[in-house]
Amino acid sequence: MRLGTFFLPTQFGIPCINVLLLCTLLAVSACASAPYDPLERVEYERINDPLEPTNRAIFSFNTVIQAVIMRPLAIAYDSLPEGVRTAVGNFFTNLAEPRNIANALLQGDPKTAGTSLGRFVTNSSVGLGGLINITGSENHGPRDFGQTIALWSGGTGAHLELPFLGSFSVTAGIGFLVDGLYSIPKIQANRGGHNNLPLLIGINRGMIIYSDNLAAIDEIYRTSPDPYTSFRNIYQQRRRQFVFGGSYDLDNLEID
């Protein structure tokens, strides 16, 4: 299941819009009040969603955007031949390799950085600009700047819903902005004056991720009495595993 990837930050390449959105969001956000009861406070801190009222409003907006824009696009994309979809997916995965290399180095993991470099060189040249995944996906280790900050700071931060983009943690949101500034589409746009390139690539990438997870998303909307909470929980579980690796949280669940 690739549901989690829908909620992971990717390179949309529209950092300026996002900075604006993030600042506006933080400025106008309504906060949920923290409970006084110590046990309920522990739960409140675990969920870590102090902007819940604002986040819920943005989630409702995103639900409409998904239904009106993303869903029809994803269904149209799904009707393309599988070979085409695989090639497009490979292309975007390859485009993100420089981000993986930089962040693996920042996280003190030269081995993964080396592997990503090898993948990028091979797939960009022999793999026809990344359309063919020559190296396979065995050693693929996606990294982002949000993960780097979270590893260095020891936490993923509060939950955020961003208009058009969906679920993020604060560190993932900051990482998304920084990664976007140094993404290949952004650099190309700066060089050639193709200002819409990052946005177009971003929409494409978002559509692919949405399309991969369409059935799972529909299922949550159909069965959950509170889709906002369900999506937030899935995002948070996936994000913590992505940042801290393995089954850190799940192994430490105090069930007794």
């Binding site: 299941m1 009495p225 906002y228 579980q237 799940l250 069930i255």
Partner: peptide
């Protein structure tokens, strides 16, 4: 069985958040 985790998502944790949210609502 205490928990079933599919693709890294703990069903127990997901249900706990959902129930908590329903009680709050």
């Amino acid at each position: 069985i205490l928990d079933v985790q599919i693709a890294g998502i703990s069903m127990l944790l997901a249900q706990r958040d959902l129930i908590g949210s329903m009680i709050k609502q």
